[in-house]
Design a protein around this nucleic acid. Structure first.
Lengths: 218, 218
DNA sequence: ATTACTAGTAGACGAGTAA
DNA sequence: TTTACTCGTCTACTAGTAA
């Protein structure tokens, strides 16, 4: 993604085009971008071509709005800035314990994953996971975490079922070494699975809906 | 400040040049910027000219570091992103005040809910709710709100009657902290109940059928 | 290996203008 | 007023190459 496109997208966002259509003439956008009306018009066409904005070309004035893809592209850059200015060597996620519906646990407990956990994380995970619902205001931090490397766990196929790639990040819960596991290819995640050598619920006397901090290493 | 300069500055910051000298060859920077060694070399000279970075041109490899002016310039952009993403974490519902038929109020005022409100919302709600009829065109926004986490309030049984789970979302009405409460399991809702530490009608001098905006935090 | 000059070129931009 | 075309200019880039 060329920088000139994200620059235009940022200015559009500042004009309010993130979640709503805004009426912006090519001249107005040109002023915001410090370029001519003609160039701004061309830029709009390019952004449309790239699928970053949608347009409602009325008779008098066009109305533009960023697409989901456009917002994502902008968030990437935002996350770069967060990495620059906000982060130390860890990110703390706040959340609360949820009962697993067996879903995540079923996946994580697959042998295909477990052998890799043992090799790559350096501990043999207790069979079972802790489900943590990440607070809404901290969900964005997961994007930041996912923009860092992590420990890549390859997917596999087993009994005709395919299990996708996941990424593990070494973490700590109340000084216990553990790891959070998130799908490699997925957009929005607000429930994370935590694996640990020990049975976290029992060892730390945790109950459903207890509030909890997870310190994720970067 | 041309965008191409902040782009280069951002990549330098990501390479660690924010507070320390880092050894980066023009080829390495070129790779990071997706441009040739020659262009990266020129970019470095331009950044030096602008006083955004300082350089320690060693025999083998140059070492660069951002100046205070360079860090400031980058922070400006970071703040633009904060304005974009950190102040957009709310949805505004438009609606009008309706007289409660006692129905919602009867539920909300149950002790089983009230203790949870106090615990989870951090304030002791005034006994009584404000009923807001959400505008038809904004009813869809409630689905968006319900797709986010919110503060889950568990149901209970009391005197042979069962009270379902509800979800509260921290909100603001004219800068007063409050929360909207909606049933956890229900599809279509167009009347929302608002709870607040204070008597909203009296404090804000509200009357039936007055139009009102509710800013719901996500 | 480096950094950085010169030269040639692709393309980004704005002026003029049509619709 | 709008949006957006064509076209000429200029500049930002890369290749080649020197130090």
């Amino acid at each position: 993604m060329d920088e000139k496109y994200t620059f235009a997208m940022r200015k559009i966002a500042l004009l309010g085009g993130l979640d709503d259509y805004i009426a912006v003439s090519s001249r107005e956008l040109g002023d915001a971008l410090e370029m001519s009306q003609q160039s701004a018009s061309k830029r709009i066409l390019e952004l449309l071509e790239l699928g970053l904005i949608t347009r409602d070309l009325g008779a008098r004035k066009q109305r533009i709005k960023m697409t989901a893809a456009g917002v994502d592209e902008l968030k990437k850059e935002y996350n770069e800035y967060r990495r620059i200015f906000e982060l130390t060597d860890h990110i703390t996620l706040h959340g609360s314990i949820k009962d697993g519906m067996g879903e995540g646990q079923y996946y994580i407990d697959q042998e295909g994953y477990r052998t890799q956990f043992e090799q790559k994380l350096g501990f043999k995970p207790y069979p079972g996971t802790l489900n943590i619902s990440v607070d809404k205001e901290d969900v964005g931090k997961l994007d930041v975490i996912k923009s860092t490397a992590g420990i890549y766990i390859n997917g596999f196929t087993c009994g005709g079922r395919s299990f996708g790639d996941v990424i593990a990040y070494k973490s700590k819960i109340k000084n216990m070494d553990c790891a959070i596991v998130v799908p490699a290819r997925s957009h929005y995640v607000d429930i994370i699975e935590v694996i640990c050598q020990y049975h976290l619920r029992r060892t730390l006397s945790l109950n459903t809906d207890d509030r909890l901090d997870v310190k994720v290493s970067l």
